[in-house]
């Protein structure tokens, strides 16, 4: 999207107005896609999957460009994986339990 791929270190890239505006347009477009996709009657599983996929793409754009992770040192990005992995583990672990419980 921008020409900063060769930049490795923070603060060496020239801050621009263009990239954040482009990212914003992308985020709005993705929002429009999810909202309009509800018009088509998808199955419950498919609509959850679609909505969560689009939300994840939007979140990635926000973290990468708005939160500047693209321009930060590598370790911050690696560190960001820790809470994400913790959350994934917690979700997976919980769902090895709850669906197999018997209610009433």
């Amino acid at each position: 999207m921008s020409g900063h791929d060769h930049e490795e270190e923070q603060n060496h890239h020239e801050p621009t107005y263009g990239t954040p505006i482009l990212v914003f347009i992308g985020l709005v477009a993705l929002t429009c896609i999810t909202v309009s996709s509800t018009v088509i009657k998808l199955s419950a599983t498919a609509s959850v999957l679609l909505a969560m996929t689009v939300a994840t793409i939007k979140a990635t754009l926000v973290v990468y460009f708005f939160m500047h992770l693209k321009y930060e040192k590598k370790y911050l990005g690696l560190f960001f994986a820790i809470p994400v992995i913790i959350l994934v583990i917690i979700f997976l672990w919980t769902f090895t339990d709850y669906p197999f419980r018997v209610y009433n």
Partner: peptide, 24 residues
């Protein structure tokens, strides 16, 4: 920059809240 980071996390959480409550 740090207050911006905070604000983006608030935005990030809404990105997930919105489809879960309004769309799905």
């Amino acid at each position: 920059e740090n207050s911006g980071l905070y604000w983006h996390i608030v935005d990030l959480i809404w990105i997930f809240l919105f489809p879960l409550y309004y769309l799905v």
